[in-house]
Amino acid sequence: MIDPIFLAEAAVNGLLLGGVLALLALGLNLIFGVIDIVWIAYVDLVMICMYAVYFLVQVYGWPIWIGSLASVGLGALLGIAVHVLIISPILGSAPVNQLLATGGLLFFLQSFATFLWTTDHRSVRLTLPTLEYGGMFLSFARLVAFAVALLVMLGLFLFLRHTYIGTAIRAVSQDREAMALMGANPRTVYVVTSAVGGALAGVAAALLIIQYSVHPFFGAAFGPLTFMICVLGGLGNMIGAFVAAFIMSEIISIGGVVWSTEMGYVIAFVIFIIMIFVRPGGLFARRA
């Protein structure tokens, strides 16, 4: 029998991980909802930003918050670059080709990172305390990451609700053709969406590097999980993705303590597959 304290600790850790996963899923979901393309390489962009924070903070000694801001900026630039260089030439192509183009980007980023930085695991060593509460040990870094993730998501919500471009983004995700008829330029919306999605990847990178070490295959570890969260919540559905992130992270965290890390993922993926059959439109889809 497993000590209930361990289970509680796993549940809290799952909750904290869920915050960062939700941020990732929202970024990917935003892009999917607007441009209708799944960026297979999304988490690999996060990996590149994680390296950026690592080098700025650990090697050049910048303060972590400046490193994080730089990561956000880099993420936005990468997002725009991906859209302009890869996505916009193939907007009219078959969905397989669109998926594979970003899949090619995945291979490129993974191997280029291997080439530049080898497969060593690198981490930012911050001296953050560990909190003890009722026998549970909680990492302060994770608490900070969770809080920042929630704040950024709130910011994203306000941006989409209360700015002109945010409204345009929501409009495109509802009806692409009607949007163009209303006189808005979908191209600008696409570029802004890619930049915002990339910036969210940058934020996630800054929050992940203080908890995990980065290596070229980081994207392979978190990528499939991120897609599944998006689909589970309903592709393009922000609130669904938010809830799904916490469900998946709890399963992985608790499953990891009860069985093994891999089994935690296996259970999460199997539940994902079953959920697709039961509720194909996502957790909160209205039945047609």
């Binding site: 193939i90 490129f108 993974q110």
Partner: peptide, 22 residues
């Protein structure tokens, strides 16, 4: 000598092929 370089070019060429030879 350059670990990862071969795969890097492979990935780049895949993107280029998919864009130009759909």
């Amino acid at each position: 000598t350059y670990v990862g370089m071969a795969e890097t070019i492979y990935g780049l060429l895949l993107i280029v092929f998919i864009i130009f030879l759909p």
